[in-house]
């Protein structure tokens, strides 16, 4: 009988060992995590809402809003 661990365990160990053995990768991952937090938490939540999704409940009212915006004389 084979003592080979199940596939999922082997995949988990593959990634775990890979991360553990990194040298340059550690600074990179720190940087990536800082970047992702800045992008997805700070920027997305605080500064970049999807205006049409936020301000209107359904696609019909979003279409109406865009139509009225495109026909606005200020443009």
């Amino acid at each position: 009988m084979s003592d080979k661990p199940p596939l999922l365990t082997r995949i988990w160990r593959f990634y775990r060992d890979g991360f553990r053995e990194m040298t340059t990768g550690k600074s990179l991952w720190t940087l990536i995590i800082i970047k992702l937090v800045l992008i997805f938490v700070v920027m997305k939540l605080l500064f970049f809402p999807n205006l049409l999704k936020r301000d209107y409940d359904d696609d019909d009212s979003r279409a109406d809003a865009v139509r009225s915006s495109l026909l606005d004389d200020r443009r």
């Binding site: 997305k44 500064f47 970049f48 809402p49 999807n50 205006l51 999704k53 865009v66 915006s69």
Partner: peptide, 13 residues
């Protein structure tokens, strides 16, 4: 993100 906030007419159109 910029499409959804700054360019909402465009991203819908």
């Amino acid at each position: 993100f910029e499409f959804g906030t700054n360019w909402s007419n465009y991203s819908w159109f």
